[in-house]
Design a protein around this nucleic acid. Structure first.
Length: 587
RNA sequence: GGGGGAAUGGUGUAAUUGGUAGCACGAGGGAUUCUGAUUCCCUUAGUUCGGGUUCGAGUCCCGGUUCCCCUACCA
């Protein structure tokens, strides 16, 4: 007997071991586990952030610990309150719930400053007043060691004085910095006397002009983690080289200190990369700025807002995060996987509707004849349709059927090949939940476009059911079932069909410019789609979409959601994903 | 001529830490089907390379290769 064993990724295994050994407190106490998501409020969150959020939140959940949302607002020049709000919204939408109030690094500036003073007193930090270029030149490079700053051995009292005056705003931007005194010949560039503070005379979105110096990432980040009692500071692979510095700063503070501060453990995992996209903020900004997309929440963007507007569910992103796993391997996840996740979720949860995207008229010429004789050309029959083929709890709805219908233009061919299971001259198909119809004639315009299709229907196939067996006991069969709408009662809608933004697996890899790989057909707007009249009807059996965004499967077409700009008078649908199409693949 | 990481089917990810290389997706084939969807069944294909230790190596040792990251007063 093989049992499904829950496999634990390397971070879970590490935490398990820490708990057993009592790394953070009493051995066995799982509730101490504390994680965080620390975005800088300077932009939009993307799918890569979603992986990080879900990883951090998931671990806190699993161990019964805490998950903290902290804004790393240490750079007043680039940050805005608006991003704080949108990031909170995205994190919540993803389903992550943070512990207590949202935290801000700027609330810790005073404490960080105090610790910096302690480092100066210990001779571990100094004020450097050299120009940026000199500092840069002295740093050396990957092969050459750096050189000491002439101010490296400035007396402690002088450092203290200068640092305080930096804080008080006595100097211009860039006039001087505070640096840690570590090792200018280290092979790890991060340890070559890294900057701790710089002068920025720009008002901060939360602290106003209270500060004139702002902490650098390496100095600030570990301290923020420490203050919040973070046990596991999870970050991406490129920070591996920063870990020695992360540890050095906390150790330096704790050196000769009566009450040592908490020392979290930083662990790195590989960031999410997806084919046919690029997570680079620079690239995304260019797409927006140059109008290649409509904005940061354009449904083609891989921002969380973009995925949301496209119709992706939080659950599908959670499924994706679980699916890609947590490792240190630089993996490239196939975009097809992402698309399959939303198909999997929506297949289960989306109620079905019939919508004709590219309508062509279909007229039933014998609608006046009925099985019991005496039909009425103008009558409308109501047909009962299941809202979900596999789940009866979705219930049914009634849709009208009559003489004048629309079907999909691509469902008719003048001279169809044998394997084409749809309509053609003389061929019979089932109109889903309607009747069986046989094509008897069609008309074309001067350009050769089909303008109208004429059919007869079989009154014995009402509801789409098979006709009764003939005298020899044989039942007539059809290969194809088409979706349709009743023309007089159809509701118009705009439908936006999205495709991948890029045509290359790794945009920009070949030519160096990602714009060269842009897919010119990534957006197709259809203005005359015809929807069944019950399109927006709430059947009560419809799932409670946690974000209020309504989603449907348009039968035989794909999954669609109601766009935020849609109104009852002017319906707008976004295609989230097409259905799998083995017919298209064969062609 | 530096440092830090990583390599398992096409893709992603496991392997009780030395004991039958498994799962998912994809792809191919078939069954079912009032969505060419869904569902179900079958098949496909892998330990970066070369040595070594061992009864036995994805796992340990030695050597090589390839890929990613590191020289911001950004995070």
């Amino acid at each position: 007997m093989t049992e499904a064993v829950e496999t634990r990724h390397f971070i879970q295994q590490m935490i398990d071991a820490d708990i057993e050994s009592g790394q953070w407190g009493q051995p066995g106490d799982r509730s101490v586990v504390t994680t965080r998501f620390p975005p800088e409020p300077n932009g939009w969150l993307h799918i890569g952030h979603a992986k990080s959020i879900l990883l951090n939140y998931g671990i806190a959940q699993e161990y019964g610990g805490r998950f903290i949302l902290r804004f790393d607002d240490t750079n007043p020049a680039k940050e805005e309150q608006a991003f704080v709000d949108s990031i909170k919204h995205d994190v919540e939408w993803l389903g992550a719930r943070w512990d207590g109030e949202v935290r801000f690094a700027s609330d810790y500036f005073e404490r960080m400053y105090g610790w910096a003073v302690e480092l100066i007193r210990k001779g571990l930090a100094y004020v450097d007043e050299q120009p940026v270029d000199d500092i840069r030149a002295q740093r050396g490079n990957l092969k050459e060691p750096g050189k000491h700053s002439p101010h490296r051995d400035r007396p402690v009292e002088e450092n203290l004085d200068l640092f305080e005056r930096m804080k008080n705003g006595e100097f211009e931007n860039g006039a001087m910095v505070l640096r840690a005194k570590i090792d200018m010949s280290s092979s790890n560039m991060n340890l070559r006397d890294p900057l701790m503070y710089r002068i920025v005379n720009t008002p901060h979105h939360r602290t106003g002009d209270a500060w004139h110096i702002y902490p650098m990432y390496d100095w600030a980040h570990g301290l923020e983690d420490s203050i919040e009692g973070i046990t596991n500071s999870l970050c991406t692979l490129e920070f591996e080289d920063h870990r020695p510095l992360y540890d050095w700063f906390i150790d330096a503070i704790n050196k000769d200190r009566d009450e040592p501060i908490h020392h979290p453990r930083q662990t790195e995992f590989s960031r999410l990369a997806i084919s046919y996209t690029n997570m680079s903020k620079r690239y995304m900004k260019q797409l927006v700025d140059e109008g290649h997309v409509a904005g940061w929440d354009d449904p083609r963007m891989i921002t969380i807002a973009g995925f949301r507007r496209r119709g992706y569910t939080a659950r599908s992103l959670q499924m994706l995060a679980a699916d890609v796993g947590v490792t240190k391997f630089n993996a490239l996840v196939d975009m097809g996987r992402v698309e399959n996740m939303i198909r999997e979720d929506l297949n289960e949860r989306a109620p079905r509707r019939m919508v004709v995207l590219d309508p062509v008229k279909l007229t039933i010429t014998n609608w006046g004849e009925t099985a019991d004789g005496g039909g009425d050309e103008d009558r409308v029959e109501m047909m009962s349709v299941a809202n979900h083929p596999k789940d009866e709890s979705f219930g049914t709805r009634e849709i009208p059927f009559g003489k004048d219908l629309y079907i999909e233009r691509e469902d008719f061919m003048e001279d169809p090949p044998k394997k084409f299971f749809r309509l053609g001259p003389g061929r019979e198909v089932r109109l889903r939940a309607g009747y069986w119809v046989t094509c008897t004639d069609y008309t074309k315009d001067a350009d050769g476009n089909i303008t109208e299709i004429f059919c007869t229907y079989d009154p014995q196939t009402k509801g789409g059911n098979n006709p009764p067996a003939d005298a020899e006991g044989k039942v007539r069969k059809v290969k194809g079932t088409l979706h349709w709408v009743h023309a007089p009662s159809a509701v118009d809608a705009e439908v936006r069909l999205f495709d991948r933004l890029y045509m290359a697996e790794r945009p920009g890899k070949k030519s160096g410019d990602h714009l060269d790989d842009l897919n010119p057909d990534s957006l197709q707007i259809i203005s005359g789609a015809k929807c069944e009249p019950t399109i927006m009807e709430k059947s009560g059996d419809e799932p409670d979409w946690e974000d209020g965004i309504r989603r449907f499967q348009f039968e035989r077409q794909g999954y669609f959601c109601v766009d935020q700009d849609s109104t009852p008078e002017n319906l707008i649908f976004n295609r989230t994903a097409s259905l799998r199409d083995s017919w298209a693949k064969k062609q």
